[in-house]
């Protein structure tokens, strides 16, 4: 991996990947596991935002909700209904975890859209951890709840006997691809969107196209806003879908 220092001489100065660099917040060069970095800061901001919305917003416990309380209740009800509909009644036990995932991803995505901010969910490390937690949790839960019967989902009994082994191989592969697609989807969407904004914004140094660039960045920003919410939704609903396999909600 060699990166030539080119581009500087031409007037364009586009570094779309710079925004993803993890750097220590209080000086120093080495990043140990405990170092306070910009990752720490933006995750902390996400936590504070979630607390502001969900804790402070609902602190009045009003019967007739205020605006923030309505939003908090809306999110709560939306995710609750999703878990109940998709994962079944047995899945409602895991609702707190699903809500945690949804809020963390949603707030990370949205905070990442602030100018100069750092998008924690655009990092594969973060999304892979999230997806692996879901994958391992669901697999262990399924084995614990259904025992060896959990492996029955790889043996498609509705198919003819001859092709069942082939289907089983495909099912196993697709099962293990789940965490990969689950994590890469989130990180890839955000990374691509932010990089595209940076690349397009970089063209603004050319005066002729700069008005077009402003319009394009605005449009892509709107698209990214949609992507931020939709990806949080998709990650959450896929978690519910996987959870359904584990708790056996598919049989009801």
């Amino acid at each position: 991996m060699n990166v030539a220092a080119e581009g500087e001489s031409t007037g364009f100065n586009i570094h779309p990947m710079d925004q993803f660099v993890v750097k220590p917040l209080f000086g120093g060069d080495t990043i140990e596991w405990y170092t306070i970095t910009n990752v720490t800061m933006w995750m902390g901001i996400a936590v504070l935002a979630i607390i502001a919305l969900m804790v402070l917003g609902t602190s009045r416990r009003a019967i007739i909700p205020s605006r923030t309380q309505s939003i908090a209740e809306l999110i709560y009800g939306f995710i609750y209904k999703m878990v109940e509909d998709v994962a079944g009644h047995d899945g409602v036990k895991y609702f707190p975890y699903v809500l945690t995932l949804f809020l963390f991803i949603l707030f990370s995505n949205l905070l990442g859209l602030l100018p100069k901010s750092f998008t924690t969910t655009s990092h594969v490390a973060v999304t892979v951890t999230l997806a692996l937690m879901v994958f391992l949790g669901v697999t262990l839960l399924g084995l614990y709840k259904q025992g060896i019967g959990f492996l029955g989902m790889f043996w498609v009994t509705s198919a003819p006997l001859a092709i069942r082994p082939i289907l089983a191989v495909i099912e196993v592969i697709s099962y293990f691809v789940r965490p990969v697609s689950h994590s890469i989807r989130l990180a890839g969407n955000l990374m691509a969107g932010h990089a595209v904004i940076k690349v397009i914004a970089g063209f603004a140094s050319m005066a002729v196209v700069s008005p077009v660039v402003v319009g394009a960045v605005t449009a892509i920003y709107g698209l990214e806003l949609l992507v931020a919410v939709v990806q949080a939704y998709v990650f959450t609903i896929l978690t519910c879908v996987y959870l359904r396999d584990a708790v056996g909600g598919a049989h009801h």
């Binding site: 030539a4 220092a5 581009g7 100065n13 570094h15 660099v21």
Partner: peptide, 9 residues
């Protein structure tokens, strides 16, 4: 430049 991304990283 876009392809090479963060120059100097």
């Amino acid at each position: 430049a876009a392809a090479h991304g963060a120059a100097g990283q």
